[in-house]
């Protein structure tokens, strides 16, 4: 954990020194983001193709409700889907609402009793974190597009519902920071979760905290020049990167923010963050429970050695005849 924290702090130091002291604006404003995007795209495609290249030999959904069987028994359409529509529904519930996490119960033995208590905190924390992250990503399209699409502006208005201060206080960033802090605290203070955690589990948390903090500071405290930032960002997207003159006009913290984001997306494909794509491919969730209705084909279904009836009867024929059981060969 310490190592992960140090890594993020070191990164901060490097960017600060690089931009503010040595004036390496081009490196952190252009090279790093481009390299990160390339690594991200390459890594993501490679990983997903890698998963997809392994077949799904068996139909192994985890069924979480009543099966489809007799006509008068209502089947659980989404928790145990037997149709494609049902599967799509199950996946949407999983991806948008974290259906499985919602089931969470806390179970422990207390005073000679197994106690089960519902525990929605993880679900709430995870949901808040992921949704706010998405809102923030969409909000940032404002810097990357011209003209800004209507849904981006709309979202920002909703996000700025609490009209506090100027520039308008956007809830999503603060909620995300809170949620990510909760996820971190959980890892830190629950002995069990700390026991299973790897450095690789803390690193993205710290990085995201860094992104959120630098972003909030840029908006509310440093008040970097939004027009400059937008010009730089548009330059990156349109493959006409800004010159060093323009880059130099942006605050150094902006480069910290940008580099943190770059490191996060470059790191993404090699890490557990790939769960975002992986959940869609999970065979226990994305298959219909219809294995008795439709034959699922295994591409590598090789022949195996079996003990045939003939071999069986050869061994037991006399005993079978004595017992009056029918045999094939007398």
């Amino acid at each position: 954990m310490i190592i992960s924290a140090l890594a993020v702090v070191a990164l901060l130091g490097v960017v600060y020194a690089g931009v503010h002291v040595w004036g390496m604006h081009v490196l952190f404003g252009i090279v790093v983001p481009y390299v990160a995007i390339l690594l991200f795209a390459y890594g993501l495609i490679k990983r997903v193709m890698g998963w997809a290249s392994s077949p799904v030999p068996f139909c192994i959904p985890t069924t979480c409700g009543q099966q489809k069987s007799l006509s008068w028994i209502e089947s659980s359409y989404f928790d145990n889907p037997h149709t494609t529509v049902g599967v799509v529904g199950r996946m949407l519930l999983e991806v948008l609402c974290f259906r499985s996490l919602f089931r969470n119960v806390q179970t422990q033995v207390r005073d000679g009793r197994v106690a089960h208590g519902s525990d929605e905190w993880l679900w709430i924390g995870a949901l808040a974190f992921h949704w706010c992250f998405l809102v923030i990503v969409i909000r940032h399209l404002r810097f990357l597009t011209e003209p800004v699409p209507f849904f981006v502006s709309f979202l920002e208005q909703v996000d700025g519902f609490f009209q506090v201060g100027l520039p308008v206080f956007l809830a999503s960033g603060f909620i995300m920071l809170g949620a990510v802090t909760y996820l971190f605290a959980r890892r830190l203070f629950s002995p069990r979760i700390r026991y299973i955690s790897l450095p690789a589990d803390y690193f993205p948390l710290f990085l995201i905290m860094g992104i959120a903090c630098s972003g909030i500071l840029l908006r509310h405290l440093v008040r970097t020049d939004v027009v400059t930032v937008k010009e730089i960002a548009l330059g990156l997207v349109t493959l006409h990167p800004a010159g060093s003159g323009l880059l130099a006009k942006a605050h150094w913290l902006f480069f910290v923010h940008l580099t943190f984001v770059s490191v996060l997306i470059a790191y993404f494909p090699t890490s557990k963050l790939m769960h975002m794509a992986g959940v869609l491919l999970s065979p226990t969730r994305n298959l219909a429970n219809n294995s008795r209705m439709v034959r699922h084909v295994n591409p590598w279904n090789y022949p195996v050695k079996v003990h045939t009836y003939e071999e069986y009867e050869d061994e037991f024929r006399d005993k079978m005849k004595d017992a009056g059981l029918p045999v094939e060969k007398e």
């Binding site: 890698g50 799904v56 996490l101 979760i193 557990k272 790939m274 226990t284």
Partner: peptide, 24 residues
């Protein structure tokens, strides 16, 4: 087995160690 079972390959990669399964 990584080449034969997408389940195995995927489950090797995507666990986030959230611990939701721990006390189950």
């Amino acid at each position: 087995r990584l080449d034969r079972f997408r389940s195995f390959k995927l489950f090797m990669d995507i666990c986030v160690r959230c611990g939701a399964c721990a006390d189950k």
